[in-house]
């Protein structure tokens, strides 16, 4: 098992991957943007402002997905003492934070023409802001603590506290009265979003996921180079 975690072996794969991921990202993003900005229809009620959804929703999904992944990796890393998992988490966090901010900003831009306000302290929006704060503390912890053992523990604790917020974000619109509308996409029942609008949404989500992967690979390679420079052959 430890053979697999040799930095040199991992690096030989991850150093070549960004090139291909970048090409794939550009292709998927181009299709996604053409679909969402030109080919998709306008909404019967919101008109063209519905197009903000194609950035807002994928960004929110990506940031939630990344935070969940970071938490899982941190918990497994803590239980099985796998240092590599912490490095993967650390490299994933920046893109998760950025997509969180994008979701908040685009939500605000979308809120003005539809609801009539830039910001509302409703449960969904507030819990999303709290997630951004958790990302911020998480990233700060990596910068502040020098001692590796210490930083692994502290970042794990931050993710465990933060993960409680994730189901709250998901179900906030069902549990309480919120200004934010409930989820349109349901795995178990029929979605309340028309297929011509669902398709660009999925393509854009794929594009954002690929972008996160690209940034992750770049960050992760930096971490591996740092380890190699220190002359350590094992993570």
């Amino acid at each position: 098992m430890y053979k697999f975690f040799e930095p040199n072996k991992i690096f030989s794969i991850t150093s070549r991957a960004p090139k291909y991921v970048l090409i794939l990202f550009v292709i998927v993003l181009t299709i996604g943007l053409i679909e969402s900005l030109i080919l998709s229809p306008e909404d019967y009620k919101q008109g063209h402002s519905v197009r903000i959804m194609y950035v807002h929703v994928p960004a929110a999904w990506t940031t939630l997905g990344i935070f969940s992944t970071i938490t899982l990796l941190s918990i497994f890393g803590y239980i099985f003492k796998l240092k590599n998992f912490f490095l993967i988490s650390k490299s994933l966090a920046p893109s998760g934070f950025i997509f969180n901010l994008i979701a908040l900003v685009t939500g605000s831009l979308w809120g003005k023409p539809t609801w009539g306000t830039w910001w509302a302290w409703d449960a969904r929006i507030t819990s999303m802001l709290i997630l951004a704060l958790f990302y911020l503390i998480y990233l700060l912890a990596w910068r502040i603590y020098e001692n590796k053992e210490q930083v692994y523990k502290i970042t794990s604790i931050i993710t465990i506290f933060g993960i409680i917020n994730v189901p709250i974000i998901k179900y906030s619109v069902d549990w309480w009265n919120t200004l934010h509308q409930p989820a349109s996409i349901n795995i178990l029942s029929k979605s309340s979003i028309h297929s011509s609008m669902l398709f660009p949404l999925i393509i854009m989500t794929a594009a954002f996921a690929l972008f996160s992967l690209l940034i992750f690979l770049m960050k992760y390679n930096t971490e591996l180079i740092k380890i190699k420079n220190k002359g350590l052959d094992r993570l």
Binding site: P41, Y44, T117, L179, Q181, S192
Partner: peptide
């Protein structure tokens, strides 16, 4: 202050 609360339905006008 009046805010509009829209629902989760999205579809083209047609």
């Amino acid at each position: 202050k009046i805010l509009a609360k829209h629902d989760e339905n999205y579809m083209p006008p047609e």
